[in-house]
Write a protein that binds this DNA or RNA. Sequence first.
DNA 1: TCGATACGCAACGGTGTCGTTTCATATTAC
DNA 2: GTAATATGAAACGACACCGTTGCGTATCGA
Lengths: 201, 201
Amino acid sequence: MTMQQTDGAVRTAGRPRSEKAEKAIIEAALDILGEGSGVSELSIEAIAARAGVGKTTIYRRWSNKEDLVVDALASLKPPIAPLKGVSVRDDLVAYLQVVQSESVHVRTRCIMNIAMSQSDKHPRVAERFHEIAIKPRQELLSAVLERGMANGELRADLDVPMAMAILSGTMMWRTKWADGPLPADLAERIVDEVLLGFRPR
Amino acid sequence: MTMQQTDGAVRTAGRPRSEKAEKAIIEAALDILGEGSGVSELSIEAIAARAGVGKTTIYRRWSNKEDLVVDALASLKPPIAPLKGVSVRDDLVAYLQVVQSESVHVRTRCIMNIAMSQSDKHPRVAERFHEIAIKPRQELLSAVLERGMANGELRADLDVPMAMAILSGTMMWRTKWADGPLPADLAERIVDEVLLGFRPR
DNA sequence: TCGATACGCAACGGTGTCGTTTCATATTAC
DNA sequence: GTAATATGAAACGACACCGTTGCGTATCGA
């Protein structure tokens, strides 16, 4: 027996599922992943314990770990900066500064690690992560570059995908293999160096 | 009771340790890592089984898994191309082509993944990997760039570490997040794009 | 030959996680 | 109140590894 509610959701008889528990589970999963565990090392028991929840409650919602992780990643809000700068240079600097500042946070680092290292073993997770975290940023970056090409700040024949790879790849390389503390003006230095080749001849 | 050998190695009484077994163990470990396992998922039992070796033989040589992995990574020969090209451009293209071709091999990919994603959890392994696989290449790349600066192919004020990050990071980004098959001339396109900003004004 | 050491193999007890089940309790619709 | 469903807690048997030990065999020096 079911009945329609005003919002169109289907209600069933009996106690409804606790949203609070669901949030706690996802938060706990992200927490553990953020501490450096890979997907395979992420145990349901550990999630349940940290979330203060019975394993039953988890298994009732997700039939396997991957589904849980996919949902967890989906809950990550991609914090995209608005990027309303005056120049392309300012926008790029602002963008890379966001990327750099995120790379400092352990949780961001670890989740990035998961995306990069476990894409072969967990393609669904990787796909979802790409859609949630990578794609919107790429589109943002792409828009900045296109704008620069349109208004003459950048070469009209700029290879946009290549330019995006140069910018993102350089920042990732430096944040990944950093020998020491990153320079505070890293974003500016990357942009200024790279733009030398992007500006009109 | 020990005695000196001609090569200075110390020989003990009794059956000597089998070099063949040692090679098999390390090879098996690399094999499993190359199939996508992380260091934590790498089990001694699995290594022993694949190497056709008793667990005893492994525990007799390494007291823990990290030591084994460190030795295994150390055994990887970094295949550095000679890079005797005529121009800086040719050398850079040749270098990046090696990087790209390696990125196709599953084993290389996975070991790279380990280095990138488990550096926080296994710092000794990461350090060793950096020394074995990253550092020699960085020095090679650095030498190419310095040569270009000396002979006028590149700007005299080029930021070498930044330039290296741009080249390596771009290739990594494209090989990592590739949507489809990589273009065959990827290395040339990266170098040609990047060199626009590296050449003298 | 003999002592010493390494070998592969099998088994040990211990631990952690799996996915499931049972239970008493809580929350909802009817 | 009653039926239905969800909850957290606990326990289940199963499995994979752990690190260790014992065993019979193989290979070395003396």
